[in-house]
Each structure stands twice: as structure tokens, then as C-alpha cells.
Amino acid sequence: MSIVETKELTKVYGSGDTALTALNHVSIHIQAGEFVAIMGPSGCGKSTLLHLVGGLDRATSGGVMIEGHNLSDLNDTRLAELRRRKIGFVFQFFNLIPVLNALENAALPLLLDGVPLKAAQKKAAEWLDRVGLSDRHTHRPSQLSGGQQQRVAIARALVSEPAIILADEPTGNLDTHAADEIVGLLRQVSSQWGRAVVMVTHDPRIAAYADRIIFLKDGVMVNETRLEAGALPAQ
């Protein structure tokens, strides 16, 4: 079963003469443990697709299924819960909370989900260690490099053990070297830790790390290229 599936997914902003179709009948399947890049020129609908898959926005028509749950069947409370437990987000500008240190930032999703502080921090510490920040637990975002801040954000995305990681231009604010490290880490998130990773990027070099690239243009999926011929990693 696909872990993410979109069926004829369509998003129209506005109405009447000013209506803008951002996404036009897009159907995709993503398997567990797969690393997929979404590419296309700006305005092609790639961020819209990511937001709809992440339940951050509602579709105009068509649907998103996450592990068999149709997002349009969920009310706002249930949708927020599914987002917290099944999906981890990584953003271009890291979106860390400046007054919290790395450990506190990474533990935050668990605390919001009602996990006791000790248990949440233990889990956060484990994930910070796994993403290579074992000696940076007590550093605040301002004391970390861009690449390190994005590592904290990836630990935060993984801390609730979601099945899916959605990354919106995760290397867009990093230099070449840090960008390679971060996309390499995302590849590890899928190949070693079995999460489905869906990444939006406009950078061909970064997209080439993925198993598959989906090309969008004017809201329509125009092409698809498989880069990794081998079977998907075992769960």
C-alpha cells in the first residue's frame, strides 16, 4: 500500500475571473521508505502539493490519503493530530524557536502531544545524536550554523516517529557544502530509517539525491523519472 496517495488532487485559489488553478488533477503514489523530489519552475504548484499532502491546506477537489486515511474525512482536530503523529515537516528557514536550545526544540512536538518532559527529552536526545549533533544539545539556534540548525529541524521532524517527512526547499538557505550534507541526511532518513521523504526543490543537484523525481508545470504533473532502479528498502 502506498503511504501517501493523491487522487486527482486540485487546488484553486480565488474564484470567478481571478481564480488561479495552482494544482490540476495530480495523482501520485509514494511508498514507505521512498525518497521523492518534486521539481518545477516557481509557481508550478510544488509547494501547494506539499501543503495539501501535509494537511496544512484543504483541497478544492480530489483527495489525499495518508496510510489509507482520507484527509478530507477528518475534522480540524483529527487532522492536526494526524499531522503531529504521522508527518514531520522541514522548512527552508528551519523555523526553530530562538529562545529554546536544540534539545528543547527537538522535544517540542512530543510535549505538544502530551508526552511527559523526561520521556520527550530522552527521545529528542536520541534523534539529535542520530543526526550528528551529540555535542550540541544545549546550544541555541543562534549558536549553530545553518546546516546544524537544519539538523535540529530534522531531529524535531523525526522525534514523533512519523512515517512521512515533508521538506520544502530544505537546502534553499544553505551553502553548497551544508546543502549536500542535509540532503545526504534526508537520503539516510529514507534509506536507513525507512521514512518516506517528499522534498520540494528547484535545484537539480539536490533533486538527484532522490529515488524518483516528479516534475510539475503549471499545476500539472508533466513527467516522472526513476533514479534508483533497485527495490525499495525493506521495512
Partner: peptide, 11 residues
């Protein structure tokens, strides 16, 4: 597609 596969191999 072919260029992307080459790039994937190189990375």
C-alpha cells in the same frame, strides 16, 4: 532523465 540518473550515480 538520463542526465538525472548520471547525476544520481555521481552523488
Amino acid at each position: 532523465s538520463s542526465l538525472f540518473r548520471d547525476l544520481h550515480g555521481l552523488t
